[in-house]
Structure formats: C-alpha cells, structure tokens
Amino acid sequence: MKKTLVLCTILFSIFAFSQEKSGAKQFWKNLQQQCGKSFEGQVTEGTDNDAFRNKKLVMHVRNCDKNTIRIPFFVADDKSRTWVLTYKNDRIELKHDHRHEDGSEDKITQYGGTTTNSGSSTLQFFPADQKTCDLLPNSAANVWWITLDETSFTYNLRRIGSDRLFTVKFDLTKTVPTPSAPWGWKD
C-alpha cells in the first residue's frame, strides 16, 4: 500500500509539473530569451521567382512584453513586415502587421491565426482565422508554423491543397547588427 501511495504521489507530481510547463508556455519562454537580438536568414523552401530570394533577410526580436512579442522581418530595405505573437489562455496567436513607409497600415494586414492546442516547446501551428478568410479568401487554407530550437527559428507557410510552401530559416547562433526601426515604429 505504501509503495502504491508513493508511486501515485510521484506520478501526480510529474503530471502537475508538466501541466505548469505547457508547450506554448515553454515556446514563449524560449522565444523571449531572444528578445533584443537580430538574426539573418535565408529562404529554404519557396518558388524560384520568390521575391525574397537572394535578398538580405533579417528578423529582429524587437519588443517583448509579458504577453506580446513583436518581430520585424526585413527583406533588404523593405521594413514593412512585423510578426506579432500574442500569448493568451495557453494559446499563441500570430498576426502579420504590414505597414507602408509612412507608417500607415497596408490594406492587407493583421491576418494570421491562433494555435488550436498548446503545441510543443519547439513547434507552434497557426491555421488561418476567420479574419484572414474574410480579408484574403484564397488564404482560408493557409497554415503558418514556427519552429524554434537552440540554433534556428523558422517561419513557414503552407497552403493546404496546393504546392505553395514558403520557409525562411534564421540562424540563432550568430547575431547581426540591430536594424533601425521598422516602418511605423520609432527608435
């Protein structure tokens, strides 16, 4: 009886500990460790005529609040894109904030999705949400995902039911100089 009680206590402790550290929470904590740093990346999947190929790609984990992380994504001199991640109720939301050079919002902005489960510490999936479907009907089948480990951050897009796949991989082992503010931001 004592062995069973001890075993039950150990299993409960392990279960309780694992509940405190959900995949989303661990992912969030790991991403926050990159705050303030900038990294160069490269397209690893995508069409040959992709507008991002052969251009300098830089992500800057620029702003980290308790529940929001903003990551500007620069394509050469184009500073129009920011990935906005929001943590709420053990889920993570990804939005794409697109701006014009004067800082005003692009007409195609704030699209993305929210994870449907807590995911893992290294992988989060974001299926297109209703706002995205309304804004961009062809994107209803979009799924974005981000992978994160000690050496790399990848941003991915797949349009389900098509050959469309885009992946850009950033090397987290080498920081690069911090770029100036993205469009619509101030230093």
Rank of each mutant, 00 (worst) to 15 (best):
G36E: 08
K131P: 00
L157S: 02
S13D: 00
F52W: 15
F12M: 13
I146H: 02
K95A: 13
K79S: 09
Q42I: 12
L148D: 02
S22W: 15
W185I: 01
N63D: 13
I10K: 06
I71Q: 04
C133E: 11
G46R: 14
W185G: 00
K88R: 10
K66I: 06
V168D: 10
T122H: 11
T114A: 05
A16P: 00
L157I: 03
T178G: 00
T122N: 14
E93H: 12
K79A: 14
C8E: 00
I10S: 03
R53T: 06
K174C: 05
K131V: 08
Q34G: 01
Q33M: 05
G41S: 09
P137F: 12
S38M: 05
G119Y: 07
I14T: 03
W83M: 14
S121M: 09
L123T: 09
V84Y: 09
F166R: 09
S118E: 09
G36H: 11
N30G: 01
R53I: 13
T116R: 13
L7T: 04
L11E: 01
V58P: 02
K25T: 07
G184F: 03
F12R: 00
W83T: 05
M59N: 04
Q26I: 14
D50M: 10
E40I: 07
V168T: 13
D90G: 03
K29G: 04
N49A: 09
F52G: 01
T173F: 08
K56N: 08
Q34K: 14
Q32P: 01
D77T: 15
L7R: 04
A16M: 08
K169I: 10
N89W: 11
N54C: 03
F12Y: 12
N54M: 07
C35L: 07
D77R: 12
